[in-house]
């Protein structure tokens, strides 16, 4: 535990970066993760990594964008296999999203429009890899402001099931982790958990 905290204090950096990749979806032409494998292709707009921390940040940021792209795909097209989630999510996030999508598909729901990443801010990097399966795993915390103003979720009859008071934008804090850091430090980043956070709404 003492060692872990030591690693944490050395490796953690509050970067507060507004990643350039947040604009990847702004042109309305989201990357297709099937033709552009998400985990192995960090954003081309990121600066060339010079340290493990910067490399992790770049890869985790790309994973978040890919994660949103795949969520859009799976919800827009119920025929797409949910196994696609495994390329971008793991642990509690994977379980939660699989359960959600299974339930929505069972209920005949589908999404129109696309959720967009408006802002993306890296909050911390922790490269402690002392026990990945137990949760001591390299992790990048990223705050994301999403925009769902163009999104609707419809039932089988085409009726919207979206609550009337749904905000168009909001913030979620993601923990993006690499459980295969030793063998694949760049390509195995996955969204591992998430939680809503209270922040000033971003501009959509």
């Amino acid at each position: 535990m003492t060692n872990s905290r030591g690693v944490l204090s050395l490796a953690t950096a509050v970067l507060l970066l507004v990643a350039g990749t947040s604009c990847a979806n702004d042109d309305g032409d989201p990357a297709d993760p099937r033709s552009n494998p998400p985990a192995s292709s960090p954003s081309s707009s990121s600066p060339t990594p010079t340290s493990p921390s910067e490399s992790a940040t770049a890869a985790a940021t790309a994973t978040v964008n890919d994660y949103y792209a795949i969520r859009n795909q799976l919800r827009r097209d119920p025929e797409q296999p949910l196994s696609m989630l495994k390329s971008v999510a793991i642990s509690t996030e994977l379980a939660t999203q699989q359960t959600l999508f299974k339930r929505e598909r069972k209920q005949g729901l589908h999404q129109t429009g696309e959720t967009k990443v408006v802002e993306l801010e890296v909050q911390s990097v922790n490269l402690d890899n002392s026990d990945p399966q137990a949760g001591k795993v390299p992790t990048v915390q990223i705050d994301v402001c999403f925009d769902v103003s163009g999104v609707d979720v419809l039932d089988a009859d085409g009726k919207s099931v979206v609550t009337p008071d749904r905000p168009d934008t909001g913030w979620i804090r993601y923990s993006v982790a690499n459980y295969e850091w030793d063998s694949d430090p760049d390509g195995a980043w996955r969204v591992a958990s998430s939680q809503d956070i209270e922040r000033t709404p971003c501009d959509a």
Binding site: M1, S4, L8, I90, S91, T92, N126, D128, D131, P132, Q133, A134, G135, K136, V137, T139, Q141, S175, A177, Y179, A192, S193, Q195
Partner: peptide, 17 residues
Amino acid sequence: DPQPPAGDPGWQGHEPG
């Protein structure tokens, strides 16, 4: 499986391990 990273709300303030 695998366990969520440290800081995940599921840990409820506990540390991995």
